[in-house]
Every structure is written in C-alpha cells, then in structure tokens.
Design a protein around this nucleic acid. Structure first.
Lengths: 218, 218
DNA sequence: GTGAGATTAGAACAAATGTTCTAACACATT
DNA sequence: AATGTGTTAGAACATTTGTTCTAATCTCAC
C-alpha cells in the first residue's frame, strides 16, 4: 500500500484485482459499495473518479461494468495478460502413440499465460516420463510444451512420428542430407538414424515446466 | 467445432473465450450482435438462451455483462483459472543482494496461473545466471519461482542470506544440528557449511520455467 | 399450394447500473 | 459562533443493457 492511497481506495483496487485475476466480471459500483462496506454508491463513484484521474483504473466510456486495473494498490503497473489453454496430450518421450495430432480430444488442459508462450498457436503439452531427456535437463515429471510443426532445425528438441516403429518419441534432431539423426538426451542411450521419409516431425519443444511442490496438472 | 453447434453459436463461444482469456469485460448482447454480424439483439438473446440451456455458458441472473464460458466451441470444458503475478526480483544464485524481501519494488512481473502455482502467497521469481545449478537441471537463463519462507527441509533448493558474506545465494540445504550445509548444484563447486545463525532462509524454489523459444520476461 | 413452425428483425419495455442532485454532518479556520 | 470545505448518504435521474412483443419472412412437411 502506497502512502497516497486511502483504505477504501486500497480495498477498491484489491477487489478489482481479485476479480480480474479470477477472470470474473468487473464489479459494478453497487458491488464495490458492498465490498467496501459503504452506504452509498456515490462514494464509490467518487473513489472511482479519483483513481481514474490518477491512472490507477480505467473504464470504457458509456459501458457498464468495464472497470479495469492499470496500477495495483502497491503502485506498480498491472499488466493484463492472455490466458492460454494448452491441451495435455499424454506422456513423452513415448507412449503418446498417435501419428497425427489432429482431432485429438484431450480431457485436460493446462492454463498458461502469454508471458510464457507469447505465440499460442498449435501448442500442446506432454508429461515427461523417465530419464531419457535428462541430458537436456528435462526431468521425469516435468511438463514440456510443444508447438505443432513439421520442420525442424538441427539441435531442436522435437517430437517425431517414426513410421516404421509406429511410435512417437521426443529427441534432439539433426539432419545429414536424407538421414535424420535422433539423439536421446541421455548419455546412456544411443543416437539412431532414420531415412528422412521414416521420420515425421510433429512438434518442437518450446517450454519446460517443473514444479517442486506438486505435480502440475495432476 | 462439434457437429451440434451452428456457425453463429461457434462464433459466439469463440468471441466469449477470447474476451475471457484476455481478461476483458464480458460482451453485451449488442457487442455480440456486432461481432456475429447479426441485425438484432433478439437473435443473440436466443443463441445465449440455447447455449446456456445446453451448458456451454452461464450468466449471473439479474446482472448485466456477466456471460461466462463453461464449455468451448470444441465441446471441452473451459476452466477459469486465476492469474498470478509474480515479481521478478533479480538474478540467482547470486547478485540479488538484499537481506530482506520486504518492501522491494520490482519493475517487472511474470504472469503465471494457478495451474502452475496453486498457492500464490509470497512468490517471487529469479532469473538463473550461470551454471551453478546445473546439477539440479536448472540452466542458465531459466526462471525459478520461489516462495518466501524462513524454514527449510533437507534437500530443499532454497535462497538463503549469508550474514557474514552479506550476500544471497541459491543452494541445496542440509542441516546437521547447528550446522547448515549448502550444496551448489554443480559438481565442480564445493559444498560449504555455515553456523546456523549465519544462514537465513529467504525462500524455497517451487517452480522452474525454461523457454526454448525466447527469454521469459525479457 | 397451404399451413405450421422457425428464423429474422426491430421497436417497445423493464431492469440494471452509473450520474447528478440535494442535504446533512464533520472538521478546520477565522 | 460563523463560515467554508470535504465527506457521507440517499433519492432522483439518465443511460446502458437484457427481455418481451409484434410482425414479416423463410423453411419444411403434408
């Protein structure tokens, strides 16, 4: 709380932030009146006008229930973000045995934000099982978020569909002419090569998430 | 798109989801009418009623502009999340040279979600610099999110304030009686021990984030 | 072709919600 | 004590927003 904010102002800003953080409707003046335990909407109106004038909040003119936060009660800018729902499709590196990602209907989504994945197109998540990615510093239990794509560059960590094995896997990708080398990220396992027509790139790892408190999306 | 949804229904649901994901005000019927290129709010009203009846959307009775999404146009449940703003306080393991986290005013926040950090109390983030945590599979450039706390258990990865060195650091914590052992997570570096009164636990690592696409919160 | 039901359209209406107005009260200054 | 300013309170008012009503048009089955 900065010294220039009164208690009701602080409470108003906190109430608004809670609503916004919760993806809930912006409060009306009446709802704020109740939350701040005031006895007249007029006081809310005045608080709102003052805070708007000082750049803490904004509203869309001529539109009801559109209060938004510009600056929190601590005085710091509040930046709106975009929530990104990423489908959790299964396990990596293996066990996710689909040859195509289209039309797959996951039951589970992981809510991320634009800060983590600025580009939200074509994302999906896999839970890492085992230690085959440990040399990439990706652990058992981690979540990896991938972007669907069909091309890869050398050194990219990708999910590929292996046609002959009828299986998908996650490995580091290297191309030598018409040969694709797939390196497991574990020294104990061997790189293997495949003719390019036997390897279909499905997605590229773009984000790694590890909780040390509890399983993510469990 | 599921086969039981009409084109206007799909567009309505998508419009609503975009608003919710963006932490923007729920649309009015008139705004939906414009977005769906209809000529009468009555059609919106009917779409809304139908979708509400089928469990795709909900609204707060007797409250304007409160449409919310229960199920997306793909038919999958849409779960609201909570956005969690985590202050980015500096670098880890070292360089963040404060003996206390209170009153620190960061310029930068990272927006996460409740899915990643179910408990949002006392969180802050540090950017990892260097390879001193590499044995913990935490890389240079990763972000670590910590929870402020003053106690730690053996094996916890914690930020501590070292009184004699007038410095903070992030290491793995082990206690032997009145001696605290702090293990860097890099085989090349040595564990060091400190009398307990010289070590103040400031926070514990709860989440590790690594983007392979671009720097997070840059 | 005819009739019934659904869809579309727009106006009228009702209710939610923000704004303005009036008045009382509290506090500081002269 | 009187005056001026700010705060509080609630009613009246204005505007936004959802609901209902009416009518025309379209679609489909018989």
């Amino acid at each position: 709380m900065t010294p220039s904010l009164s208690v009701p102002e602080t409470k108003l800003l906190d109430t608004l932030q809670r609503r916004l953080d919760a993806q809930a409707p912006s409060p009306t003046f009446e709802e704020l009146r109740v939350a701040l335990r005031l006895t007249s909407k007029n006081q809310v109106s005045q608080l709102v006008a003052g805070l708007e004038q000082r750049g803490y909040i904004a509203r869309a003119a001529g539109r009801k229930r559109t209060l938004t936060l510009l600056r929190g009660s601590d005085g710091r800018p509040y930046h709106l973000t975009r929530v990104v729902h990423v489908p959790l499709l299964g396990l990596a590196p293996a066990s996710f045995g689909q040859d195509t990602l289209d039309g797959f209907a996951p039951d589970e989504y992981l809510a991320l934000t634009q800060d983590l994945v600025p580009d939200e197109t074509g994302l999906y998540a896999l839970r890492v099982s085992g230690d085959s990615l440990s040399d990439a510093h990706i652990n058992d239990g981690d979540l990896v978020v991938l972007r669907q794509q069909q091309e890869a560059s050398d050194g990219d960590l990708v999910q590929v569909w292996l046609r002959r094995e009828d299986a998908a896997t996650v490995k580091r990708y290297f191309r030598q002419g018409k040969i694709i080398w797939l390196h497991p990220e574990n020294r104990a396992l061997k790189p293997r090569c495949y003719p390019e027509e036997d390897v279909r790139v499905q997605g590229k790892v773009v984000l790694v998430l590890r909780s040390l408190e509890r399983a993510l999306a469990a």
